[in-house]
Design a protein around this nucleic acid. Structure first.
Length: 552
RNA sequence: GGGCCCGUGGCCUAGUAUGGAUAAGGCACCGUCCUUCUAAGUCGGUGAUCGUGGGUUCGAAUCCCACCGGGCCCGCCA
């Protein structure tokens, strides 16, 4: 839960006391530059047959004396409120002074699970999958910022057909002593080719699945070994982006512990049989839980996984590719309607990333790995910093380049509304100007640079503010509302877009409001503004995973 | 064939959930500003019938219907 002086709510409640039919949506942030908040009185006027003047007088009567309002105006059917920047600055400062954050957070006991990535361990992670990781990780950070206890989770598929073919391919084709994820991927590609040709490879894979579910020791050991190699590689790549997953659940463990069998028992009354294979009807479709040879399918394992999560968490969030939409609907139906789970369950979907040349395909070698993207982003940003700051030592340059690279990648991928299909272009991913992470980071670095020159400078809430100061303060004040909206819609990209907006406002301030050579009162209030700005940027940046640098 | 998602200047996007005031940015292009706190920046300019056609409404990028174009799904795969 977030704590701050909510003037929006105060205005809403006052107006509602005068006109009970008014909803929160009737009070809105102004987008047109007329004011800060506006009351759209059209409905009230129509319903009650009132003139704009009549509504205006009434509103003025209830709110006219509020100490945080600078002026109230009537324009057409709008009642426009301009808030006092001084009050907004005080509201920000009040929270920041004690806790060093705005807004303050009240810890919530609810435990939240955010499952993300969960990609099949069949090769190095590519840039399509990291859309999942980046959305999931940012979402987890957002929810934690809100005060929930968050655990990030990865469901490791080590028991499906893909992994069985990976292992069969490894046994047959990979002749390296200590294979890397890239070696294993080669074996997987060959195995898939063989299977497409219709050779005996298919039978080998079936046998692997049966052996694995029976608990045959050498198969178990072998599969765990290859999966672990790939999982390690995925984790190393993700750690370059600052992403760490807290909890891994292996599908095979759910089979061995009997959790999957228990799902079958719990659902017994719903199950139907077709040649020995078990299915249930969900939304008019046959959803199979086992094959005719009795081995389990993803659906039953995923139900077991969700039951495990329901036991340990109050709120489950799954980040899934849009191809899982139907599957998610079935999971929801089974766990909620058939198995009576009551805790909250939400899904966040994202559309696929493709290349300019078309879809990504692991088997055709049509992928860009995260490692490749990271290396090229590193190279590009190093070149740029080196050009701009030739006086800095290589170690420092590298540090800055790494910060820029991670931030640029995360920001570029997160910024886009997750429903939109994304076509990956190098020129856009590596563009470090305009609406990008470095744009945000650079402004922060300039703010920090000013502060370095003003150590021990006294700061204070000022008396009056000019235009640029006022609109920066207003933008900062709005931060909690962005967090609320972002959480409500499970849209961490809102925070990224807010950062861009905030940065534009700061740049306005920076170019128009000198600090170091300002007169005393002016200097003191501007220092406070800069400190508030830096606090909020750091806060928002840590949610979307930007690496904030004091110098760049 | 059925279902879900997306369509906003040449290119990439914000705004759509809860309809509201001249549709907000970036890239590219043209021009401006480093003897004031970092030019990864700033300011100005060119450029949009918000996919198309209907409808609802005082008011539609936003809601409804139809159509067009793109993505995804409709496996004893995951």
């Amino acid at each position: 839960m977030l704590l701050f002086d909510d003037y929006w709510k105060k205005i809403f409640e006052s107006i509602q006391s005068a006109y009970p039919e008014v909803t929160e949506g009737d009070i809105a942030l102004d987008k047109s530059g007329h004011c800060d908040l506006t009351f759209r009185a059209f409905q009230v006027m129509k319903k009650r047959g009132l003139s704009p003047d009549a509504v205006f007088s009434k509103v003025k009567e209830t709110l006219g004396s509020a100490d945080f309002i600078e002026k109230i105006e009537s324009v057409g059917g709008y009642v426009n409120f301009t808030l006092k920047p001084k009050r907004l600055m005080e509201a920000i400062w009040k929270e920041m002074e004690g806790t060093n954050q705005y807004p303050d957070t009240f810890q919530d006991p609810e435990r939240v699970s955010v499952e993300h990535t969960s990609t099949n361990p069949t090769g190095p992670i590519h840039i399509g999958r990291i859309r999942n990781s980046i959305i999931g990780d940012s979402l987890a950070r957002l929810i934690a910022r809100y005060g929930y206890r968050v655990t990030t989770q990865y469901f490791v598929n080590d028991s499906g057909r893909q992994v069985a073919s990976l292992y069969a391919g490894y046994r047959k084709f990979v002749k390296v002593d200590k294979p890397t994820a890239y070696d294993l991927l080669e074996g997987y590609k060959k195995a898939t080719e063989e299977m497409e040709k219709g050779t005996g490879m298919n039978d080998e894979v079936d046998q692997v699945i049966r052996d694995y579910e029976k608990g045959e020791p050498s198969t178990i050991e072998g599969i765990k070994k290859v999966c672990s190699i790939i999982l390690d590689s995925i984790n190393t790549s993700l750690s370059n982006l600052g992403i760490k997953i807290d909890d891994y659940t292996w599908e095979s463990d759910l089979i061995r512990t009997g959790d999957v069998d228990r799902v079958m028992e719990d659902l017994e009354e719903e199950l139907q049989d077709e040649d020995g294979a078990k299915y249930l009807m969900s939304n008019g479709r046959k959803m199979f839980l086992t094959r005719k040879d009795g081995t389990s399918l993803y659906f039953s394992r995923d139900i077991a996984y969700h039951l495990y999560k329901f036991q340990n968490f109050d709120w489950l969030i799954d980040v899934l590719g849009e191809n899982h939409k139907e599957h998610a609907g079935h999971i929801e139906y089974v766990t909620k309607s058939l198995l009576n789970q009551e805790h909250r369950l939400d899904f966040v979907f994202y559309s696929y990333v493709s290349l300019e040349t078309g879809k990504m395909s692991t088997r055709k070698g049509q992928i860009i790995t995260l490692d490749e993207l990271y290396d090229r982003a590193m190279e590009e940003s190093f070149k740029i910093v080196k050009g701009k700051r030739p006086e800095l030592p290589d170690k420092k340059l590298k540090e800055i380049a790494a910060g820029v690279a991670v931030s640029a990648i995360r920001f570029h991928i997160l910024k886009l509304n997750s429903n939109k299909p994304m076509v990956f272009k190098w020129s856009e991913a590596l563009n470090l100007e305009g609406d990008s992470a470095p744009f945000v980071m650079y402004s922060y670095a300039r703010a920090s640079s000013i502060m370095r020159k003003l150590e021990n400078q006294k700061q204070s809430v000022g008396l009056e503010y000019n235009k640029e100061e006022g609109s920066l303060i207003r933008q900062m004040y709005l931060y909690p509302y962005v967090l609320v909206e972002s959480l409500k819609g499970l849209k961490p990209e809102n925070v990224a877009n807010y950062l861009l907006e905030l940065t534009r406002k700061f740049n306005d301030f920076y170019t128009n409001c000198p600090v170091i050579n300002a007169a005393t009162e002016e200097k003191e209030r501007r220092v406070l503004i800069i400190n508030a700005y830096r606090t909020i940027v750091k806060d928002a940046a840590s949610i979307v995973g930007l690496k904030i640098l004091e110098e760049m």
